[in-house]
Simulated scan of single mutants.
Amino acid sequence: MQDVLITGASGMIGNIILEECLSSSRINKVISLVRRTSNHEHTKLEEEIIEDFTAYDNHRDLFKNIDSAFFCIGVYTGSVSDKLFKEITVDYAVHFAKMLKEHSPNAKLCLLSGAGADRTEKSKTSFALYKGMAENQIDKLALEFYAIRPGYIYPVEPRKEPNLMYGMMRKLYPILRLLGSNFSIKSIELGKAMYEIGINGADKKILENKDLIHHLKEQSERE
């Protein structure tokens, strides 16, 4: 029985992971860090409102005795200023990881990163640069850390696409799927794969799109 900590449970992937945790007999408790209450009620769920995701001084107890943690907060490129994009992508993730390291050093941590994350930190693309920065800084903490790098995430549930590019990608998904496991993954597949890796661990610390699909396939075959 594990105690789980998650941020970003209101998002597409975070919500799938949350539901997997709540329905699993392997999970004892889920602490969800949120900006505002979701009114989601469950006997396993404890929601905690966080005003500043870079300041956890008044919330240290939430990070104690955690077995597995998921960081799923993210923002679409171009939807906010570059400064805020970096703060959300790097600072939020690193502060979360540092608190986890301090209070539950043996916990597993899954970071929702992305394909192309650049650990050389030389990319001129904000997404690749900042995802690489976050991975590097968290890796230095010596947690059991897994960087999850999906390609295009196909939303299984209908939604209003955040911009024109994502609208086009959704229409092109059948073609992307035909290109193989390197380029795309369904939202439900990604959520389930992250959940399994966060709870059970994995052989690799950096999991690209094809690794996530392979991991999920192996899990399905074992069941």
Rank of each mutant, 00 (worst) to 15 (best):
L143Y: 04
P155E: 13
H215D: 07
S24I: 00
S23H: 10
L5K: 05
S220Q: 13
P105R: 13
A9K: 10
D118Q: 11
C72G: 04
T77V: 08
F70A: 06
L109D: 03
H42I: 00
F85T: 10
L179N: 10
D52E: 09
L129Q: 13
S24Y: 00
Y195W: 02
I175R: 01
L129K: 15
F85W: 04
Y173C: 12
L84C: 04
L164P: 00
S68A: 15
H42Y: 03
E196I: 09
A69N: 14
K140T: 08
F127G: 11
Y92P: 02
L141I: 03
E144C: 07
E121D: 07
E157T: 11
V94A: 10
L62G: 11
E144R: 05
E19K: 00
I17S: 00
A97K: 08
K210G: 09
L45V: 02
G132P: 09
S68G: 07
T43S: 13
R26Y: 13
M12E: 08
N163F: 04
I188A: 11
M1Y: 12
H59D: 15
A107V: 01
I66W: 00
T125E: 12
R170C: 08
M12Y: 02
I213T: 05
Y76H: 12
S79K: 15
N39S: 13
L18Q: 11
F127C: 11
V90A: 07
L178G: 01
A69R: 03
E19P: 01
P158V: 06
L190T: 03
D211Y: 02
V30Q: 04
S32M: 07
H95E: 15
P155K: 14
R159G: 02
K44P: 08
Y166H: 15
K98D: 10
I138A: 08
K210L: 01
H215K: 10
E157F: 07
H40W: 07
S68V: 01
K204R: 13
D91K: 12
M99S: 10
R159Y: 01
